[in-house]
Simulated assay, not measured.
Amino acid sequence: MIAAVLTGVALGTGMLLVVAWWEARRLTLARRLAPALAAPGEARAGTRTMTPLSSVERLLAPALRDGVRALERWGSSTVEIESRLRRAGRAGTAEQFRASQVVSGAVGLAAGLVASVLLGAARGSSPLVLLILTLACCAAGILVRDHSLSRAVRAREARLLAELPAAAELLALSVSAGEGALGALDRVSRVSEGPLSEEVRRALGRTRAGMPLAESVRTLGDSTEVEALRRFADAVATSVDRGTPLADVLRAQADDVRAAGRTALMEEGGRREILMMIPVIFLILPVTVLFAAFPGIVALNLDL
């Protein structure tokens, strides 16, 4: 039974590889004209690999491209993925991320096939159930990769929010000492480490490249979904544009962020308190009642 299943899986995989190889070798009009119409930089970029395993990727390039196109059609949009990659602080493009999703889905598919073969050999499960299990493992591999990116975005934005009050206080001290807004931002980027200092360095790089400071700071706020950082960037940009006292604005922003952090901490504490009631009510309380009532029940049985 196991040999027959393994033979069928190997035969199906071989047929898929042959079809993918044939499709990759078939020349179309678009493929003939692409090298002549592409710019030199684009032609070189087309040969880059999207995964660390370059040899395996070149071997399975047709199937990988088909998977990337399928995810592009049915998954998240390119703009959304690029925005999440930027918010997570990760380099790379949306196509590279989709390629990693395809690889993760292939790993999940392989794990599902192994589990299906073992279950079919051991218990004789229904082929429909095994097929659903295999497809679920493949989908789980794709979704795990997407979930890891979402977790990275939330973790980085939490670090941004935690670093913002200290950075605002340092900016206020630098401005109060006589430095300008550009010099204060440069000092913060040099003496601090973390995602916020990285964003400040990018903003300074845009300013040195010719973008006005106020517009560069607003771009810093627009690159993330942290509302406190957006308000901070808008306040700094408005102060630079209108020439209002920057130190007072920065201190007020730091106080607002700390107050928002305390409020969020109280809300999280309330949610945790409710979650703590679940083991108390469904685990500890029934055991306590059982221990209290068991001697009486035993005594009644003895009397009877």
Rank of each mutant, 00 (worst) to 15 (best):
A139V: 15
A139C: 04
A140S: 12
A140D: 04
A140G: 11
A140P: 02
A140W: 08
G141N: 08
G141E: 09
G141Y: 12
G141F: 10
G141C: 10
G141M: 11
G141W: 04
I142T: 03
I142E: 03
I142N: 06
I142A: 06
L143N: 13
L143V: 12
L143A: 15
L143R: 15
V144R: 10
V144L: 14
V144N: 06
V144A: 15
V144F: 07
R145N: 15
R145F: 02
R145Y: 06
R145H: 13
R145G: 13
D146C: 02
D146W: 06
D146V: 02
H147M: 12
S148C: 09
S148K: 01
S148D: 06
S148Q: 11
S148H: 06
S148R: 12
S148M: 08
S148G: 00
L149M: 12
L149T: 00
L149I: 04
L149K: 10
S150W: 08
S150M: 07
S150P: 00
S150F: 02
R151Y: 01
R151P: 01
R151W: 00
R151V: 11
R151M: 08
R151F: 03
A152F: 06
A152K: 10
A152I: 00
V153R: 12
V153S: 03
V153F: 05
R154E: 05
R154F: 01
R154W: 02
R154L: 13
A155S: 15
A155L: 14
A155M: 10
A155C: 01
A155R: 15
A155P: 05
A155G: 01
R156D: 10
R156W: 10
R156L: 08
R156T: 09
R156Y: 11
R156G: 10
R156M: 10
E157L: 04
A158T: 01
R159L: 15
R159P: 03
R159C: 04
R159Q: 14
R159W: 05
L160Q: 04
L160R: 02
L160D: 05
L160M: 11
L161N: 07
L161R: 13
L161P: 00
L161Q: 13
L161V: 05
L161W: 08
A162L: 12
A162Y: 03
A162Q: 11
E163A: 09
E163T: 02
E163N: 01
L164P: 09
L164T: 07
L164W: 04
L164G: 05
L164I: 09
L164A: 13
P165Y: 14
P165A: 07
P165M: 13
A166Y: 02
A166F: 11
A167C: 05
A167F: 07
A167W: 04
A167S: 14
A168Y: 02
A168C: 14
A168G: 00
A168F: 08
A168N: 02
E169P: 00
E169M: 10
E169Q: 12
L170G: 03
L170Y: 04
L170H: 08
L170C: 00
